[in-house]
Design a binder for these strands. Sequence first.
DNA 1: GTCTAATTGAAATTAAATCTCAATTTCAGT
DNA 2: ACTGAAATTGAGATTTAATTTCAATTAGAC
Lengths: 140, 140
Amino acid sequence: MQNKIFQNFLGQKGLKMTRERFAVLEEVSSVPVHFDPEQLYARIRESGLKASRASVYRTLSLLVESGLVEKVSRSGRGNIYEHTYGRRHHDHMICDICGEIIEFYSEDLENLQLDICTSNNFKGMSHTLEIRGHCENCRR
Amino acid sequence: MQNKIFQNFLGQKGLKMTRERFAVLEEVSSVPVHFDPEQLYARIRESGLKASRASVYRTLSLLVESGLVEKVSRSGRGNIYEHTYGRRHHDHMICDICGEIIEFYSEDLENLQLDICTSNNFKGMSHTLEIRGHCENCRR
DNA sequence: GTCTAATTGAAATTAAATCTCAATTTCAGT
DNA sequence: ACTGAAATTGAGATTTAATTTCAATTAGAC
């Protein structure tokens, strides 16, 4: 599972699996799917776990590198991350009014992007598609 | 042209066309297509024009609202904007290595997004697609 | 020209994220 | 289990981006 994955990732890079890194991964698993670093830090403090703000940010970067977490958006002030372990890739619609985040996935969309990368001789590693507008509820 | 457009926009909102706002729009027109607010501010200082940092940020928001400027990305630290007057919508590939920004446009991609919005009962107003990876030059 | 509401700018403030560096911890090699 | 080198940590300082404050100024309707 994800602990093993993270441990392998760290091993490959000659990094150590510390108590703090474990705590961050632990909390990432229990936090809502979309979260921001400060939220995560606050929750770690509340739960018995321990990791400084610096470690939270540092570990978050490693988790992104390892593929367990993705940076979702930078619409507002800070970054929003999401826990991606066991969830397939998807993109987001964000309601400008109520802030709701709707996830969607389209095979066609993914393929189209691959084609576009190919024809530009670009090696696409990741992407973010964010559609902003008004959600179902706010359309009235 | 764009001055008129901005003026109309301001008029409609009961806002005033000030020297400072004019200066910002002026400089947006001469700056490279992709720019960040601090760059813009620096260039305004250099040229004879005058507008405080606060006014630059404030005006930039208005320009986005008016449609003359778009927020492109928030990949790194600050926001990147682009001047969109007279240019059609497009998306971006950003090289993780050298930072190069490649623009692209795909009718199919746009249509696909429309379909996706429709089937989610979402009224899409704008979107940002950012593909990150390695550009042609950096692939070796 | 007058008047009022909008706007400005300098500096303080907020907020997110990163950096510093002495003290601590991990873990590979024994 | 012990040791030592190298990685990691945390508290607080720092950086950077952006926003806010508010008294003084200015635009523009009348």
